[in-house]
Amino acid sequence: MGPLIPNGVIPYEWSNIIAILIGIAFGFILEASGFSSSRKLAGVFYGYDFAVLKVFFTAALVALIGLLYMDYLGYLDMGSMYVHPTYLWGAIVGGAIMGVGFVAGGFCPGTSLCAVAIGKIDALVYVVGIMIGVFIFSELYVLFQPLYEGAFEGNITLMDSFGINRYWFVFIFTIIAIVIFKLSDMIRKRNKKIFY
């Protein structure tokens, strides 16, 4: 049956409309969870608020377990799911740059747009910064190209590269996530409470 659009359950023409609807829902949830506050987001790095870590980890886990159950029950074909291609160098360098930007600015790209929507001035500055970054990258693309396309690994998943059973992987991943949740709670309790 699934994925719905490639299998023609939903016509292909609807994909943009569905994307907009999902985007609106995503933005709403981000804002409702308080992710349009840079102080809350930066709390992960300073150890006084781990909501970001918990929300995204939980979302990944729920999606992962849900997809595997749907695949097991035959509602979804995991083989026809989109797997994002891996460019190792691009991922490492880009991830480091984004991490620095995350600590310094207190937003990730998605939450910054969310914060712009509710009129945060720091988010506006952040988005202008993103645009400048995009401009520089596009203009100097020839320079960045070897890095951008370097160490192409194909559309691989962690299961492919480690070669372990995906069900065991998900189980271990769940345990790790819960241990991390517990640890993050302990760290938060040690730290001084900050009101923001």
Partner: peptide
């Protein structure tokens, strides 16, 4: 909630 997640993930292994 954590227990539910563990049980569901464990279920995948045991199925």
């Amino acid at each position: 909630l954590a227990l539910i997640l563990i049980v569901l993930a464990g279920g995948l292994v045991l199925l």
